[in-house]
Design a binder for these strands. Sequence first.
DNA 1: TAGATTGTTAATCGATTAACAATC
DNA 2: TAGATTGTTAATCGATTAACAATC
Lengths: 215, 215
Amino acid sequence: MNNEMLIRITRYYRALNKLRTIGLEKVFAHNLADAAGVSAAIVRKDFSQLNIYGQKRGGYDIVELSDVIGKILGKGEPENVIVVGCGRIGMALMHYSGFENDGINILAGFDNNPGVVSSNSSLIPILPISKLDEFALQNKISAAIITVPEAAAQDTYSHILECNIKGVLNFSPVTLKPMPTADGKLPVVHNINIGLELEQLFYEIKFPKEQSPNS
Amino acid sequence: MNNEMLIRITRYYRALNKLRTIGLEKVFAHNLADAAGVSAAIVRKDFSQLNIYGQKRGGYDIVELSDVIGKILGKGEPENVIVVGCGRIGMALMHYSGFENDGINILAGFDNNPGVVSSNSSLIPILPISKLDEFALQNKISAAIITVPEAAAQDTYSHILECNIKGVLNFSPVTLKPMPTADGKLPVVHNINIGLELEQLFYEIKFPKEQSPNS
DNA sequence: TAGATTGTTAATCGATTAACAATC
DNA sequence: TAGATTGTTAATCGATTAACAATC
């Protein structure tokens, strides 16, 4: 499954769960297409590749489909993540309670200024960076969010990879140099570069396409 | 220019400006490739499409290349943007001073709780939502960052589009329904969905590819 | 039945990669 | 000259779209 498809499948999954809570039973390819912002042909193509089959003329059973896609996405126990760098953005993420809906818990923050954050549902400790290794190993943390200042990003990244962490969501504008994790494999790195997004936005505003296919 | 290429060009541009400040004169395709995380062939292909030519065996002149790409990207006067929704994330963005390097100024925030934010270099007012229309029109704002709670996102989006705003960076996890701006055209919308990024990250950690091509 | 939807196959499109001539 | 790099052309690859048979 490639990246684009993964995004689509995740969007289908979210839409299905919303429909499920509403109590609907059946969904058509074009419904999911609308929810994910793609064409119905792509939805069916995706399902075909995943060996998911509906009923001709009858669409797909929402509960069944949601369960199947949940399995494909590996949904089960909530996932745990830590936040490294508790400046304003890091703190904002720790306070945000919406990730629980996505099956994700922020277990702790790490910063040179320790403390405690009271999230909606729980208290999240902010521990000193010196505790990072111990905490990550004891809690089997596999992913970290990097929200340190730009100058510290690369070092923080290196440090994190030594703690058996396999995935990073990087908010710093630094392009992290590829380096293997403790087990010799390459980590998964996703970058959220807000400045870059704004630059792109302004470019597209200045030089509009005839038909604007929203990102 | 498509989206992927725009991202690459913007990355080349950033790398060039860093090299420029260091004082280097020449750059090769593979240098820019490293900086943008792509192959040298793509760099040359991109330049070829943009009618940018270097010197065989001699690479590209950094200052010249930076100027040319700057023109292509429409760089000139700094761009102004507003933040709608001054919760923790909105406030974090307003305090962040790194956007100035990208030629972007946050002129004001809008929230039901007005106030003032002192950024590194300036004071940014937080105005009541009722002042949004007036402010946006007077200051010819063309882009807005939406950082309101999920439930308010769609309404905020509709409201913003009535103020002649042409581009939106949406931090809420809502898929905004497409709707035309005041002048009848479709706005540019970029979405930053942190929950979705985390979900993808965990999927890729759980089901690793043989060769992990970092996002 | 008629109409709507699924699911597959082939066609199209575009982007990346490979190969290589040009040339400094 | 030999080696390195550019820039173009063709080949490859993959994803989306179009077309359509199957069928409820």
